[in-house]
Design a protein around this nucleic acid. Sequence first.
DNA 1: AATTAGCACTCCATTCGAGTGAGTGCTAAC
DNA 2: GTTAGCACTCACTCGAATGGAGTGCTAATT
Lengths: 343, 343
Amino acid sequence: MAELELDERKVKILNAIIKNYLETGEPVGSRTISKYTDLNLSSATIRNEMSDLEEMGYIVQPHTSSGRIPSDKGYRFYVDNLIQAKNQEVSEMKEWMIEKTEKMENLLKQVAKVLANNTQYATMISAPSVMKNRIKFIQLSVVDETQILSVVVMEGNIVKNKIITVDAPLDNETMLKLNMLVNTNLNGLTVNEINLGLITRLKEQAGAHGEIIAQVLDTVADTIQEGADLEVYTSGTTNIFKYPELSDSKRASELLTTFEEKQSLVEFLSDNDGNDTGIQVYIGDESPLSTMKDCSVVTATYELGDGVKGTIGIVGPKRMDYENVMDNIRSLKGQLDKILHND
Amino acid sequence: MAELELDERKVKILNAIIKNYLETGEPVGSRTISKYTDLNLSSATIRNEMSDLEEMGYIVQPHTSSGRIPSDKGYRFYVDNLIQAKNQEVSEMKEWMIEKTEKMENLLKQVAKVLANNTQYATMISAPSVMKNRIKFIQLSVVDETQILSVVVMEGNIVKNKIITVDAPLDNETMLKLNMLVNTNLNGLTVNEINLGLITRLKEQAGAHGEIIAQVLDTVADTIQEGADLEVYTSGTTNIFKYPELSDSKRASELLTTFEEKQSLVEFLSDNDGNDTGIQVYIGDESPLSTMKDCSVVTATYELGDGVKGTIGIVGPKRMDYENVMDNIRSLKGQLDKILHND
DNA sequence: AATTAGCACTCCATTCGAGTGAGTGCTAAC
DNA sequence: GTTAGCACTCACTCGAATGGAGTGCTAATT
């Protein structure tokens, strides 16, 4: 306990333990390390070092007298080192098979799927927060006597629509006026900026049709927000069965339930602090979701522009292939940023 | 083997066996039945009868000298009897908490969720086949120089939209003409009826803007079909973990994968023959999906009108509570038909 | 002729203990 | 500081023993 830092040899041994455990999923013993590493040390020496590492909290024994596995702190050390190392080297980007698609929804589903296939973990992706996104264009049209269709196009060509039911039929002239009114006043605004004051002002301007306007505006605001909280897409959730430590009935059930009821995922994904690289790793208990306490989660945010952000996430066992996952997610984030900005 | 039919006593015993097994999930023995039923018979007599029932194929022994469980044929007998009995009595409908919602998608998701909650099984629901659905209204509008928004409203207020990219900007007059053209010619048609001939004819009528028209029309047709094959919503898939016989790792994984990759569900749901009542029960191997060979599936079709159909389905263990499930699904089908027709 | 009591038998599930092997911690020697 | 050696721990596997639920058959009963 004299030193707080790990000396070079301990680092090597710790890395060897972790790497081996990532591959096998089995506790790793001193003999294995003694042969695995290039530093020529006997198993006894390794045992001493491992004893130290355990005391420092980097590794733990599942049971007395079995090999060691990394603790959350051990993984954290490993991942932090990885990030440092990776930041220096230029990671060559894989090209992704993402077709540029008109619909945000399809794009996101596709991204989740590709990522799940590539990594063999479960993935999730949240749509860019609609609240901060700007309105590009609004179209109101008459469907029949009592129904009006409202279509709102936002930045990034996200389209929202809704059928509005009105009491009395609207003539062409009124519709024209309505369209003019909403487009001149609302285009360029975000949902947050459409407040009651603005609505009242427009209502006055509309004169005779004030009530209708109010109703339509209300519904437009509603339309945009509707279901906004639930737009998370998942893919590869059944990949968790590939990892024995997650696939016992109880754990699998809990995890999959979390994925099915997207609500908590949404909160998780909108939670990100966003450090410098935009990539964040949650190991075990670091995750805000208790059902994921036996998992690691890697997230990254992508931008649609102007602070409008969404988040991608990968969920796997703690012994996930962090290197591959981070490469993948970094590359994908780049692609996504590019696609969305060129739009 | 003298008679082919089951006498009344055998029917009673078979029913008792099945009912008991539905509750417990354990093989049921002769002593249990001897006490369970009102016909006062000793276990020995029951054993003789059970021996007969086994020979006839209605029940099986998991192992020599353990209780009996129903065979698929046994379940089938039970279910068929149930249907007959139920058809006579007027089943009082539960009222469902389905809010009438503007969007078909939300409606379906909600239905799946309610049904899953009520039955505690996994549910799935397919959207009404868009191919046979009629176009109610089309709106084309200019978003910016190169982008046109096309919105198609179909019967049942299903809204489809897509951004169309064009080479040259279109002026107001052309847009007006385009809108007139598509609305007068396409409204009331189904996707199937928009064929190449029609498109060519419209193209001629459009004269100078023929190329644009063609492109727009193509895209409109595309829009409607887009993703049409994938519109299946599932809910409560993790309920399968409530039933031990389905929740071992391998089976659960296969089943959930089937639910995740909706493709095969779509095929299943569009497969229905639709008998008189519209409700169909698949027991074990009767199901077209091999991953569901240990399950039972109950489906019902609902109508949006004019032959435009969708299907609801419930997936659970073979020992599902058929009575409750069929009640639920029948009631829900009714509700759904009502909601969709009043629209 | 149908039903029942009695009994031997089967087979699953559980428990128990011995044996095995990977791995550790400690001590003493290098 | 490093290593060899050794006793010890503990999960895991395997087979035998046990118990219990349930059957099938036969003989007795109604």
